[in-house]
Structures are given as structure tokens and as C-alpha cells.
């Protein structure tokens, strides 16, 4: 970054007092931090690099104070004009130019005595925007009381048991190859086709999509058996697997 510091200008001295004399103008120095773009030859390659960065992060230079540092490029006056047009075309407005001997008319002012400040990190954005990936989680052991297993984007499979006081929340289906004694909520991401399967049915609470049923309303016929749970119409249905 370069600090820009306008040359201090002497305030105009006041005229001899007369009733309608204009107020004297006061000018003061202010220092700001700006981003410096330092193009390097060959210019077309540098412009390609700029385009790639802007493609990854379109708002990289949007609304930022940008200084054009010509020290490396050392362009001729008309080359400078062309460069300015290229930058303008990319939506980059240049506040001032440094590293050049003189600037032509119609261009941003020449800046002197720029000071470097801290390096600016361009945030590295992954090449492709991340697509929502559907995943499945498998728990090798048991899920103990107080533990939660949450997978909003897919199925959850538990090889052991789910204890009373434990909780499974899945965007997809839930498969328990042991006893289900805790809470199981499947289809949490608006997926009414999700199901819950277990080898020993003793849950505290079941849910599919937005519908929930507690142990009180489950009856006793399925207790201890292998069962599956699904949504039919607007109702939670439960049946033995055997």
C-alpha cells in the first residue's frame, strides 16, 4: 500500500477587511491508506493475471482506493492512457498515479512520496464455488447419552446402539444396527422420504421431516423388535422389519 499525502498548500492571506470579503480558505494535510496496483511488463500478461484474480473474487477492488504504481512498467504517455482505459473497463477507478515523471491531462494526479504500509492479503478463494455435497456419516461404535450426531446433508449409520439421552439428526435416513433408545430425527432438511431403521426399537423420540412423535404415543407392540419408521401422508408409520 502507499500512503498518499497531498502537497501542503499555503492558505491564501486575507484581503484588507471589507464587509463582504470572502472567508480565507483553509487546507490541511490528510493521510490515507490505499491499495497500489503495480503492473509489470509484459502488460498483456499482467492484465490476464488481473482478470483471473477478478474472476475468482469479483469484488476484490470494488470501492477501494487504488493507486497505479508505474515504477515497474514505465509506460509512455499514450501507453499510460491505454492502461487507464483498460483499468476503467474493468471497473477499477484509479485515485492517483505514482512512479511516473508526469501525467497528461485528464488523468488522475501524480502522487509523490508514497510510504509502504502493511502488506494486503488477497483472500484466496477456491477455484470453484463449493457445491452442496451429499454425504453419509457412519459411527463405528455406540452413541452414548449426551452425545449428538448431526448430518444435515445425508444419512447417518450407527453400527452400535444409540443410548437413552443421545440424539441423531440426519438430513437423510437413519440406520441403527443396534438398539435405538435415544432420539432420532430423519429427513431434517425437508426430506419426507427419509426413513429410520433399527434392530431394537426403544426410542425416546422419533421425527421425520417436521413431524415428531414421542415414546408415549408409540405403543408397545414394536418394543425390542427390529423396525422401520417412515412418513405416509401426514403420519408417522412404524412397522416391524421381520
Amino acid at each position: 500500500m502507499s500512503e498518499t499525502l497531498p502537497e501542503p498548500i499555503e492558505p491564501e492571506t486575507a484581503q484588507a477587511a471589507s464587509p463582504s470579503a470572502p472567508r480565507p480558505l483553509s487546507l490541511r494535510g490528510r493521510a490515507f491508506k490505499a491499495l497500489a496496483l503495480s503492473p509489470e511488463p509484459p502488460l498483456p500478461e499482467w492484465l490476464a493475471g488481473l482478470d483471473a484474480a477478478l474472476k475468482r473474487s469479483p469484488t476484490l477492488l470494488k470501492g477501494r482506493a487504488v493507486i497505479l504504481d508505474c515504477a515497474q512498467l514505465k509506460p509512455e504517455p499514450d501507453a499510460l492512457e491505454t492502461l487507464m482505459n483498460e483499468l476503467r473497463a474493468r471497473g477499477i477507478s484509479v485515485l492517483g498515479i505514482e512512479g511516473a515523471d508526469a501525467v497528461g491531462a485528464g488523468l488522475p494526479p501524480l502522487l509523490l512520496k508514497g510510504q509502504p504500509t502493511e502488506k494486503v492479503e488477497i483472500p484466496s478463494v477456491p477455484a470453484e464455488p463449493p457445491q452442496p455435497v451429499v454425504t453419509s456419516i457412519t459411527v463405528e461404535g455406540s452413541v452414548r447419552s449426551g452425545q449428538s450426531v448431526i448430518n444435515p446433508t445425508g444419512d447417518v449409520t450407527v453400527m452400535g446402539s444409540v443410548s437413552s439421552g443421545a440424539e441423531i439428526l440426519a438430513g437423510g435416513s437413519i440406520h441403527v444396527y443396534g438398539a435405538l433408545r435415544g432420539r432420532a430425527i430423519a429427513g431434517a432438511a425437508r426430506n419426507p422420504r427419509a426413513r429410520i431403521y433399527c434392530r431394537k426399537f426403544e426410542p425416546e423420540l422419533l421425527g421425520i421431516d417436521r413431524l415428531v412423535r414421542t415414546a408415549e404415543d408409540m405403543g408397545t407392540t414394536l418394543r425390542g423388535k427390529a423396525a422401520q419408521v417412515w412418513l405416509d401422508g401426514g403420519n408417522i408409520r412404524m412397522a416391524s422389519l421381520d
Binding site: S145, S163, A166
Partner: peptide, 13 residues
């Protein structure tokens, strides 16, 4: 039993 189960969960984590 339930408290023991909770403790076992902590032992594993």
C-alpha cells in the same frame, strides 16, 4: 445406568 453411559461417552472423548 444412564449417568454411567454419559460418563462412558466422556471417557471416549
Amino acid at each position: 445406568v444412564r449417568d454411567s453411559d454419559r460418563i462412558i461417552g466422556l471417557l471416549d472423548s
